[in-house]
Amino acid sequence: MAGEKQDNVWPLPKFYFKVEVEGGMTASFQEVSGLDAEVDVYEYRHGDSKDFTKIKMPGLKKYSDVTLKKGHFTGDIQFFEWFSKNQLNTIERKGVTIKLLNEGGNPEIVWTLTNAFPKSVKSTDLNSGSSDAAIEQLVLAHEGLVIAKG
């Protein structure tokens, strides 16, 4: 097929994105994963039903934990500081916004996490025989995920 007859609509690349954490926490992230939602399905059949099947109904929504990965930088311990603030019955929850950007730097799709807090922080592994960058990981638990157009 000739180039002029091909479709001019292409999927967005996934490498151009921005993460904003409420309260001014800033970082350039390498990877974001876990932007998933699902619903429990409940099955029910009442006793006088003439159908030999169950009715399926939606139940409670469930959201996956979201994992953020970024490089370690000199003096940067903001993930660990946020994680350290969480104690029993004292949780610092924040809104988190992830934006998939187009080539102009404008958001096309926006994921918003509600009441997010750090579930775990994982520092980099250390290896004297490697030249890889030091990467840290923050796993966020949250209470809701909203997906919207940019």
Rank of each mutant, 00 (worst) to 15 (best):
L145M: 08
Q137R: 05
L68S: 00
K99A: 03
Q6C: 08
G24L: 06
E22W: 03
F117M: 08
S130G: 13
R93C: 10
N127A: 13
Q78Y: 06
K14M: 04
K70Q: 09
S120Q: 04
I135K: 01
N127R: 09
K14N: 10
E81Y: 03
I147D: 00
E20S: 11
M57H: 07
E92F: 08
V110E: 03
A141P: 00
L12E: 04
D51I: 09
D51L: 13
S120F: 00
A37Y: 15
F17T: 01
Y16E: 03
G144T: 04
F29K: 02
V96I: 15
K69H: 05
A134T: 11
S49P: 10
L101R: 03
L68K: 00
G105M: 07
L12P: 02
S33P: 06
T97V: 15
S130N: 11
N115H: 08
P13M: 07
F29C: 04
G95K: 13
S84W: 04
N86A: 14
P107E: 05
L35V: 14
G104C: 07
V9Q: 11
L68E: 00
L35W: 14
T124M: 08
T124K: 04
K56Q: 15
S128I: 15
F15W: 06
K122N: 07
K119G: 02
E31S: 14
D36K: 15
S130V: 06
W10G: 06
V41D: 01
S128H: 14
S84E: 06
L138W: 00
K18N: 11
G95N: 11
K149A: 08
Q137I: 07
E20K: 14
N89F: 07
L113I: 03
G150M: 05
P11H: 05
W82R: 01
D36I: 12
Y63H: 15
A141W: 00
Q30I: 09
R45M: 08
A141S: 12
S123R: 03
V39T: 15
V32I: 14
K61H: 13
L35P: 01
K70V: 01
E108F: 07
T97E: 12
G75Y: 02
G47R: 08
V39I: 14
V32W: 06
D48Q: 10
Y63N: 11
I77S: 06
I55M: 13
Q137K: 08
E31Q: 12
K5W: 13
V41Q: 10
K149C: 02
G105F: 05
V9K: 12
E108W: 02
